[in-house]
């Protein structure tokens, strides 16, 4: 966190074109904002639809960029990112299974890094760019990895699936030609009690091939 905060520029989350459109809609003014690299938070920020949790006295305001949309939100310093995503933002695709960094069900991508969101405090994510399972599908269309999960039956109960998809999407984003061992390594931190691992491996390799 500290090195990100040391640079003023890094405070502005990098925004892809797709996310940018999702955030502020398409327009000339928006395009200008993009090229200058200075994103004004206010026009795009989504004020939370739900009322803030009662009874929590010490809320710290933070700003999160989740799947390209900015959220201004008050959090207690002890709230984890997983809890904030699920409870405060209603994005329940990210799962909490162990709540202590053992299973990977809560895996999300923060500023291009794979993290366990149950082990990450939301306050530490202020001004971070977060990518969750809800943001993986491209518009209405499934990401090739998601399609490969379905085609290869890489899910049974599906509770580990969001975490698996995030871990493997991160792999494919960075390593378009993974070997089987790379795939295994990439999801070694994601437990699947139904035991779908062999199909998960197949799905990741197939998606890699299709994405080339």
């Amino acid at each position: 966190m500290s090195e990100i905060k040391s640079s003023q520029e890094a405070l502005i989350p990098p925004v892809s074109r797709r996310e940018f459109i999702a955030t502020v809609g398409v327009g000339v003014a928006s395009a200008t904002v993009l090229t200058t690299g200075v994103m004004e938070a206010e026009p795009a920020a989504e004020t939370l639809a739900h009322e803030p949790t009662e009874g929590s006295a010490h809320h710290v305001p933070i700003s999160l960029w989740v799947n390209g949309t900015q959220y201004e939100i008050g959090v207690e310093p002890r709230w984890t990112l997983a809890t904030v995503l699920r409870r405060e933002l209603g994005m329940t695709g990210t799962k909490i299974v162990c709540d202590r960094g053992e299973c990977g069900a809560c895996t999300v991508i923060r500023n291009d890094q794979l993290i366990y969101s149950c082990m990450t405090l939301a306050v530490d994510c202020d001004r971070s760019r977060i990518e969750t399972i809800e943001g993986v599908a491209l518009k209405e269309k499934l990401h090739p990895l998601q399609q490969a999960f379905i085609d290869n039956d890489a899910l049974q109960c599906g509770y580990c699936t969001p975490g698996m998809v995030m871990a493997l999407k991160h792999l494919l984003d960075h390593q378009p030609r993974p070997a089987l061992d790379d795939v295994k390594e990439a999801c070694a931190g994601n437990l699947c009690r139904c035991g779908t691992y062999p199909n998960v491996f197949k799905a990741a390799l197939e998606a890699a091939q299709k994405m080339r």
Binding site: R86, M91, T92, G93, Q146, I150, D151, D153, T161, P162
Partner: peptide, 23 residues
Amino acid sequence: IPRVDGDKRVTGAAKYTSDILLP
């Protein structure tokens, strides 16, 4: 045949009991 609800499970749209949020 691939699961008919596979899309819900791979996108996070599937609502499990643990995901139910009521006002």
